[in-house]
């Protein structure tokens, strides 16, 4: 990727990451998934994270108000605004704020979020660990 394209990508993703800090918490998940997808399309280095990776993630708020899924297959990420069948992991969270604390705060902490009953999961914990790494990387690389 040449220098100018790289700067353009960085600019766009940085803008979106910044937006995540100011948007209403209910939109956190949607925004995170959108940015992740964008970064995976534009940044070859980041895309290495999903090369050969197949994973189905379902996210749902406890009150049922938020539901989304992220599907990784064929080196691509798809986002659905509903819960998919047969996910590798379903992440249930108290609200958008809780999910953000778990994945995108200065010190994201899955275990602490679980202990505080803010986040629970059903399925393979390693999938959540991988997703948390990708979110953290996004934050470290592109945060303003």
């Amino acid at each position: 990727m040449n220098f100018f394209k790289r700067r353009l990508i960085e600019h766009r993703v940085k803008g979106a990451v910044s937006e995540m800090n100011s948007r209403a918490m209910d939109l956190f998940l949607e925004t995170l998934l959108r940015i992740m997808r964008l970064a995976l399309i534009l940044d070859r280095g980041y895309r290495k994270n999903i090369e050969g990776f197949q994973g189905r993630y379902a996210f749902a708020s406890r009150d049922g108000g938020i539901a989304a899924s992220a599907l990784f297959d064929g080196n691509r990420m798809k986002v659905k605004n509903r819960l998919v069948d047969h996910p590798d992991i379903t992440i249930e969270f108290k609200d958008g704020k809780a999910l953000r604390r778990c994945l995108f705060s200065e010190n994201p902490d899955i275990i602490a979020a679980i202990l505080d009953n803010e986040v629970s999961y059903t399925g393979n914990l390693n999938y959540l660990a991988k997703f948390a790494y990708m979110a953290k990387h996004l934050q470290l690389t592109f945060a303003l």
Partner: peptide, 10 residues
């Protein structure tokens, strides 16, 4: 060991 995955960069 995979529990440190989210922390690899920190």
């Amino acid at each position: 060991g995979l529990m440190v995955w989210p922390e690899l960069e920190t």
